[in-house]
């Protein structure tokens, strides 16, 4: 019941959305995942890492 309720918060079951150009075709969902992966990679490298007080 609860699961069914929250499961419908964002419905991804609709008509598929795709980006199509010549022989290139990608689903919006896959594109979002790949772009997010690149963004997280860039962030992981760029974001400052907390300094450690106990450094010897």
């Amino acid at each position: 019941m609860l699961a069914a309720l929250v499961g419908a918060v964002v419905n991804l079951d609709g008509r598929p959305r795709y980006i199509h150009s010549g022989w290139f075709l990608i689903s919006t969902a896959n594109l979002v995942v790949i772009v997010a992966m690149l963004a997280v990679f860039a962030l992981a490298i760029a974001a400052p890492f907390p300094r450690d007080r106990g450094e010897a």
């Binding site: 019941m1 699961a3 069914a4 929250v6 499961g7 995942v33 992966m37 997280v40 990679f41």
Partner: peptide, 24 residues
């Protein structure tokens, strides 16, 4: 089962995250 479906969703999104983190 709706509970079952939710657990399946956890299994799917866990897998998506697994690959996501592994690739990074």
């Amino acid at each position: 089962s709706s509970v079952g479906h939710y657990v399946n969703s956890v299994h799917l999104w866990g897998t998506e995250l697994f690959f996501f983190f592994m690739v990074v």
